[in-house]
Amino acid sequence: MTAVPTSWFLLLSAILFVIGAGGVLLRRNVLIMLMSVEMMMNAVNLTFIALSRHLSSLTGQIFVFMVMAVAAVEVAVGLAILIELNRLRATTDVDDVSSLKG
């Protein structure tokens, strides 16, 4: 029944996660960083769904549901902060925002 092995999905998930992480680490544009975070979350979601099938349990899917809710909130708040930041500093470059420097 399982035509495609679970491990394939896990591998794909890992690749997507690392790409997303790379985006967060390498890009300086906050917008792109947020997108990358979304991609990382999606990679995790894929893992959940794959394991949900692998273990014949719906819990994974419920988790994905919750992750989506959190992701929606995160994007909404994150973008609101981004707009406010842009209004204050006229920039979307994270390296320009380092007032937390110790």
């Binding site: 992480a21 967060v24 390296d95 925002v97 937390l100 110790g102």
Partner: peptide, 18 residues
Amino acid sequence: WLGRLQTGFIRHYALAMF
């Protein structure tokens, strides 16, 4: 001394997390 670790650059924090 430790405060210097806090560069204020988000990417550094993300790297540490990673």
